[in-house]
């Protein structure tokens, strides 16, 4: 990309703003939904853009490998440290207060306890009832689940049927993404809004936020898996000179 003047200029102009925006999201995070996580992603995107446009060598000059590794370790330490520090410094009284507060205000808790109340036939996602119009309604009414199943099988098929190692990773990605859809579908309450508590507001119907949180975790896991998978593919390419499964198998058989 180095010879594309337009890309270079635009990237050069854009990157400072991307970083600035990331910092804005980071420090605004306290007051709005999201926060540190998105900020980190935006921040990282700036560096990835830089690496794509100006090449990996230049990017490594900006962020040397040692620095990156140290940052990862420190980040994890800070993250785990916050949890431990909280646990250590917690006093009994503070704990009791906290519990009382969460009992009345934590949205996930309310959403879930309401979920427990919902029972009966519409909880059974995969239960077909009767022929005729009911079945048609079932097919259309559950379209998000059909998409989930379609994507799942599609991804699965790509993983199994493709011999190219990168394509397999793509298939794996589609496969994982389908599960995200499943979880989000489960959390949706018809007519529900975002689960934000407004002081003084009456009871509102809101979607269950918990599956979103779970899926955020699963997305992180998916990203980590993809990154690791692709880096393995790079190493395999270095060692074998190919990323086609058949050729690799042939080479392994020879000696």
């Amino acid at each position: 990309m180095r010879h594309h003047v337009i890309l270079r200029v635009i990237a050069k102009l854009g990157i400072p703003f991307i970083v600035l925006f990331a910092l804005y999201v980071q420090f605004h995070g306290d007051f709005g939904p999201g926060g540190g996580f998105q900020a980190g992603v935006i921040f990282g995107a700036a560096f990835i853009l830089y690496a794509l446009i100006f090449g990996l060598d230049n990017a490594l000059k900006v962020a040397p490998m040692n620095l990156v590794i140290t940052f990862i370790a420190v980040g994890l330490l800070v993250f785990a440290g916050v949890g431990v520090a909280r646990q250590v410094s917690r006093l009994r009284r503070a704990r009791r207060q906290f519990r009382r507060r969460t009992a009345s205000r934590h949205p996930a808790r309310r959403a879930r306890s309401r979920d427990h109340g919902r029972r009966g036939h519409d909880r059974d996602l995969l239960h077909l009832r009767g022929p005729g119009p009911v079945a048609v309604e079932f097919l259309i009414g559950h379209y998000n689940y059909w998409i989930f199943i379609f994507l799942m099988m599609l991804g699965f098929y790509v993983v199994v049927a493709r011999g190219n190692l990168v394509k397999k990773i793509i298939g794996l990605n589609i496969f994982q993404a389908s599960v995200f859809l499943l979880y989000i579908s489960i959390g949706k309450v018809l007519g529900g809004t975002a689960p934000i508590i407004i002081d003084g507001g009456g009871p509102v119907t809101y979607s269950n936020p918990l599956p979103h949180v779970l899926i955020l975790t699963a997305i992180v896991v998916g990203v980590a898996t993809t990154a690791l998978g692709l880096s393995l593919v790079i190493r395999i390419n270095e060692a074998y000179g190919t990323i086609e499964e058949d050729e690799i198998n042939d080479m392994d058989q020879e000696p």
Binding site: V159, L172, V179, L182, T225
Partner: peptide
């Protein structure tokens, strides 16, 4: 061969874990 073994494990392990995730969901 360690690389291809790790890759193979990654693919199958991820499928396993994702199946598990669907079940939990």
């Amino acid at each position: 061969k360690a690389l291809t073994a790790a890759y193979q494990y990654l693919v199958m392990g991820t499928i396993g874990a994702t199946f598990f995730l669907i079940g939990v969901g």
